[in-house]
Amino acid sequence: MNIIGPDYLVFGVDDIAACTEYLTAFGLKAVDVSDKGGLFEALDGTGIIVRRKDDPGLPAPLPTATMLRQQVYGVRDASDIAAIEAELGKDRKVHRLADGSIETTDDLGFALKFQVTKRRKLEMPAEKINAPGAPAQRKPNELGVWQDMPAKPRTLSHTVLFVPDLDRIAKFYCERLGFVITDVLKGSGPFLRPKACDDHHALFFIGTPEYMKGIEHLAFHMGGPTEFMLAGSRLVKAGYESFWGPGRHIFGSNWFWYFNSPLGTHFEYDADMDKHDGNWVAREAPAGPETAQVFLFQHRDKWFPSG
């Protein structure tokens, strides 16, 4: 089962216009978007799909405040879809669509879809830095930053869910779908990566009461810390609401900056996440401010030390 990671997250919302404004400001590109919603994609084609909450084409809503309606995972090829269909078909309905993708639900009722991934292969350099003692990464006269330098989300990175039964959900993703636990924040929950993904996490669970069930946040990978800081600063300057960050997480090592959204979840910019393979041994730490970040800053307006 070669699951690569989330292709799309699907939301049912009550204000398409507000979501269109927000997702565009976040740096996603509207593709076929009308007053009924549509796809907002990152540079590799992964992204967010919004529909009106009463759109009959959406899976049923959860009975909570969450607007998340479906998580769409991309897999390598049709044989992976067949393997997932065979495995999950043992104890639940799996619905095959005309395009070969399949829809079902996980053990806690979150709607899932699996498709041969629609993501496009990205060929872009990472942020380049110069440091004494190491070969310069930028050529002579190549600039590191300029005010209007592009800073677009490259790919959908991960999803974080509030779940009422941590053991059950972790078991489902690991035993039935081949995810691996990379680290655990005790008191919150486990970080997971699917087998065909080497990112530290594509999924993280936070244990909560049933009435909170839903999505805590989703994240997009940026090209490096500079693009990450630029994109976040631009959102703040445009009047959007920063929730937490900028800072750098410990588990995963990724830079983080979270923003509120009209989709009822945080949108995170992240950058420079750790990669792992089968040799990694999961760590454990108690959840709290000290284990959640190595440092945390808060945005302030531009300033200049003049007389």
């Binding site: 009550d14 927000y22 909170m212 509120n260 009209p262």
Partner: peptide
């Protein structure tokens, strides 16, 4: 903080104050 943008404190339908962290 609850808005998703400066002064955007209501849900889309305008019926409630909303927290735009988790709805």
């Amino acid at each position: 903080p609850m808005a998703w943008k400066k002064d955007a404190y209501l849900n889309g339908e305008g019926t409630h104050l909303a927290c735009h962290s988790h709805g």
